[in-house]
Simulated assay, not measured.
Amino acid sequence: MPLPLRFQLGARTLASIQRQLVRVPLSLDEAIEGRLPQLPPLDRAAHGYQITSLPEDRRDAMALAGGGMIAFVRQHYTRHYVDLTIGHDAYLKALSSNTRSGLGRKARKVTAVSGGELDIRRFRTPDEMTAFHDVARRISLRTYQERLLGEGLPDDPDFLRTMYRLAAADSVRGWLLYIAGEPAAYLYCTIDSGTARYDHVGHDPAFSDLSPGGVLQMEALRDLFGAALKRFDFTEGDGQHKRQFATHGVPCIDMLLLRASLANRLTTMALGGFDRAAGFGKKATAKLGLEKLAKKVRR
């Protein structure tokens, strides 16, 4: 499929190079077990593979499996997850005292603004998911994920068909947080082989000062601890929100394996140079104490 290789700062894409790539994503189980994925045959028009959530210690083995292709690591991160088998009480004890008190304070603040009740609504059946999607989609339109990344809650026919099929099999969940009667945040998760996935999430920026995403995440996890599941998977990528709620993590990389052409070599040189410059800028921003300003610029 055509996949853009982005020159990206936070949520802002400054430029991109289009390549025909075969995406090879590893599941959480595969990442935990350290499996090396099987590479499907490449079509003649394809430039290579995009491998996501590859365990970091499998980097050299994956490059060797590429058989002379250009191996380029685009991203290092921890794939975070929550062990849902430990029980909700044990989970709360595993969180830091600062995290527990902070989440409690945020929940009380939202409750106070909402007239004394924390208004969380749960959805799972096909009819319920219709109602969920209508409201969540309106929230999504206002999020930076939708505006800048094009990664909001989808509304195309394929997504909706899949959502209804999963709902009929009891393999999808949706949550909405209302604040003072207004929809403020949503979370959409699919369930496969005992693992709930953090697929789509967002909140209305008008409520950002109340941290609606964190409040909703805690209540969703409370529900999932009672659902006889194994894990909650925060999927690819790092972030403070994921680190705050996770109990475990797997060091991972996203790797490109590209055909050994001049164009692809120049592409990886450009991406590498940009990534190094972005990393230097991030360190300088942190050193100068400008993280909040940088976050606003990126979004």
Results as ranks from 00 to 15, higher is better:
residue 87 G to N: 09
residue 107 A to T: 11
residue 164 Y to C: 08
residue 197 R to T: 13
residue 205 P to H: 07
residue 290 L to C: 05
residue 207 F to E: 02
residue 168 A to I: 11
residue 288 L to A: 13
residue 193 S to V: 12
residue 257 L to G: 04
residue 227 A to G: 04
residue 103 L to W: 06
residue 210 L to I: 06
residue 188 Y to H: 11
residue 156 D to A: 12
residue 175 W to L: 00
residue 67 G to E: 13
residue 1 M to Y: 13
residue 34 G to Q: 02
residue 44 R to C: 08
residue 14 L to R: 03
residue 151 E to W: 10
residue 35 R to Y: 13
residue 269 M to K: 04
residue 228 A to G: 10
residue 96 S to P: 10
residue 39 L to H: 03
residue 51 I to K: 04
residue 298 R to L: 10
residue 180 A to N: 09
residue 259 R to W: 01
residue 9 L to I: 13
residue 294 A to I: 07
residue 243 R to D: 01
residue 287 K to P: 01
residue 213 G to M: 00
residue 217 Q to A: 00
residue 30 E to V: 03
residue 141 L to Q: 09
residue 25 P to E: 12
residue 274 F to T: 04
residue 274 F to H: 02
residue 160 L to I: 13
residue 237 G to T: 01
residue 240 Q to R: 13
residue 50 Q to G: 10
residue 10 G to S: 01
residue 190 T to P: 02
residue 215 V to A: 00
residue 85 T to Q: 14
residue 141 L to A: 15
residue 230 K to Y: 09
residue 70 I to K: 10
residue 227 A to F: 08
residue 262 L to D: 12
residue 35 R to V: 15
residue 128 E to H: 10
residue 64 L to F: 08
residue 72 F to G: 02
residue 53 S to P: 07
residue 214 G to D: 03
residue 203 H to S: 15
residue 120 I to P: 07
residue 74 R to E: 15
residue 14 L to D: 02
residue 239 G to V: 05
residue 13 T to G: 03
residue 267 T to L: 04
residue 104 G to F: 00
residue 281 G to I: 02
residue 160 L to F: 14
residue 34 G to C: 00
residue 77 Y to V: 06
residue 193 S to M: 14
residue 89 D to K: 15
residue 240 Q to L: 04
residue 59 R to Y: 07
residue 40 P to G: 12
residue 132 F to C: 09
residue 78 T to R: 11
residue 49 Y to A: 05
residue 117 E to C: 12
residue 274 F to E: 03
residue 103 L to Y: 07
residue 123 F to T: 07
residue 202 G to V: 12
residue 11 A to E: 11
residue 195 T to V: 15
residue 184 A to Q: 01
residue 58 R to G: 04
residue 152 G to L: 09
residue 249 G to Y: 03
residue 294 A to D: 02
residue 22 V to W: 10
residue 161 R to Y: 11
residue 155 D to F: 12
residue 254 D to W: 08
residue 100 R to G: 11
residue 99 T to F: 05
residue 26 L to S: 14
residue 224 L to Q: 04
residue 40 P to A: 13
residue 103 L to E: 06
residue 73 V to C: 13
residue 69 M to Q: 13
residue 122 R to W: 10
residue 232 F to I: 03
residue 79 R to M: 00
residue 40 P to H: 14
residue 65 A to R: 13
residue 40 P to T: 13
residue 145 Q to V: 06
residue 151 E to C: 09
